[in-house]
Design a protein around this nucleic acid. Structure first.
Length: 311
DNA sequence: AAGCCACGCAACCGCCAAGGT
DNA sequence: TACCTTGGCGGTTGCGTGGCT
């Protein structure tokens, strides 16, 4: 026999709280503390179940709750902690003073998760998605553009140039995706080392790396790891790529597309990715997947025949 | 102006673990 | 040791709101 829900008791109100109810709850807790949540509603004169009171208090009425938009630093902290802890919202909340687990959970589900997905990153593993279908739209768009450029009779030189430019921009985006994938493989081993270090020293310095705002918000440090993979400073290379006139003309530096850096610099998907945490799940890494399954980025995107092999 | 839709968020539900008896 | 109570947590739902057609 299952347990009956706490609010099944007759006459207990559900749904949104009124200001009067809020006031009663706040007054009571300020005078007496919450004590037993089950007993509280009767004592406070509320027609609610104890659980509802507790939730209302912890998620909304508590005086130390910080409301308003999440700062960039808070976002980064959530991303980093989520990559380690997963959906342990209460654990994540302990690192964000004034934020409730519910608020963080909502923020994750409505903002961060979608953003990661848009960037081609699996929100659960924090690793770039390597499945073919995740990249299919990009590849199809690329293939279509390629055919247009190659087979259409061109009277309008300007239009041709623009399409070619767009093709290059799409290539750039796909290249960035592959770089993310390759970088993740590199970062994974580093992350593993970091994490084992954290685990080994967790008693003295629990999660010290992740809870340090300077490190959490440092894109360059993580970006430097990517440099090692290709021997090229990825951030500078990509900034150069994205900063070129073509990208500007195509709107690839628009803030609403990739995000705008603090001093007006462009934040590309990859650079944003660089700010994501190192990856944690090395055990599931398949040496044959991701970038190693594909040809090298050069081969993939600059050897045109590959592209038109797709139907 | 009205209807539709997507989004954000507060609140609920159900499960689980800890502690008490 | 088994059962019960309680609090906590994560997942999900549903309502309000704003933007778009």
């Amino acid at each position: 026999m299952g347990r009956s829900p706490c609010c099944d008791e007759h006459g207990l109100k559900k749904g949104p709280w009124t200001p009067e109810e809020d006031q009663k709850l706040v007054d009571f807790i300020q005078k007496h503390g919450h004590g037993s949540w089950r007993a509280l509603p009767k004592l406070a004169g509320l027609n609610r179940c104890g659980k509802s009171c507790r939730l209302r208090w912890t998620n909304y009425l508590r005086p130390d709750i910080k409301r308003g938009k999440f700062s960039a630093e808070e976002e980064q902290t959530i991303l980093n902690l989520h990559s380690i802890l997963g959906n342990k919202w209460s654990a994540i909340a302990t690192h964000l003073p004034g934020r409730t687990d519910n608020e963080i959970k909502n923020f994750w589900n409505t903002h961060l998760k979608k953003r990661l997905i848009q960037m081609g990153i699996d929100p659960m593993t924090h690793r770039p998605r390597t499945d073919f279908f995740a990249t299919l739209p990009q590849l199809l768009a690329l293939a279509n553009l390629h055919e247009l450029v190659d087979h259409r009779p061109w009277d309008d030189h300007a239009a041709r140039l623009q399409t070619e430019a767009t093709t290059q921009a799409v290539k750039l985006q796909c290249l960035q995706y592959l770089l993310q994938t390759a970088a993740a493989v590199t970062a994974t081993s580093a992350a593993t080392n970091n994490l084992s270090g954290v685990a080994a020293t967790s008693e003295s310095e629990p999660l010290s790396l992740w809870s340090t705002p300077q490190l959490l918000s440092s894109q360059s440090q993580v970006g430097n790891e990517i440099t090692d993979e290709f021997g090229i400073p990825c951030s500078s290379m990509l900034e150069q790529l994205v900063n070129n006139d073509e990208a500007h003309d195509l709107g690839y530096n628009r803030g609403d597309h990739f995000g705008q850096g603090e001093n007006g610099t462009i934040r590309t998907p990859l650079l944003s990715q660089c700010s994501l945490p190192p990856l944690t799940d090395v055990s599931s890494l398949n040496p044959g997947d991701a970038c190693s399954t594909f040809a090298s980025p050069d081969q993939l995107f600059f050897d045109e025949p590959f592209i038109i092999e797709f139907p």
